[in-house]
Amino acid sequence: MKITVDMDKCIGAGLCVVAAPQVFAQNDDDGLVIVLNENPPADQHEAVREAARLCPALVIHLQDDND
């Protein structure tokens, strides 16, 4: 799995941090998303998908491997 985020549209709602705290964080300066691991391990995939579904600004994009 490969994560990309559209920083221009991020509003810092923080739901990604709630859904997948090991993969996403918020920048101290502006509250916007930080991806801690662009290639998260398999045990995080479900949480990352939940984060992408919940993101209100629709900025989290996932590219799935054939796993």
């Binding site: 810092g12 923080g14 918020q26």
Partner: peptide, 19 residues
């Protein structure tokens, strides 16, 4: 609407961050 909204909202995102 954006982009005006984005500019104003981002001034306050950090005040309401999860952490």
């Amino acid at each position: 609407d954006p982009p005006e909204h984005t500019k104003h909202r981002r001034m306050f995102s950090r005040e309401f961050m999860v952490k």
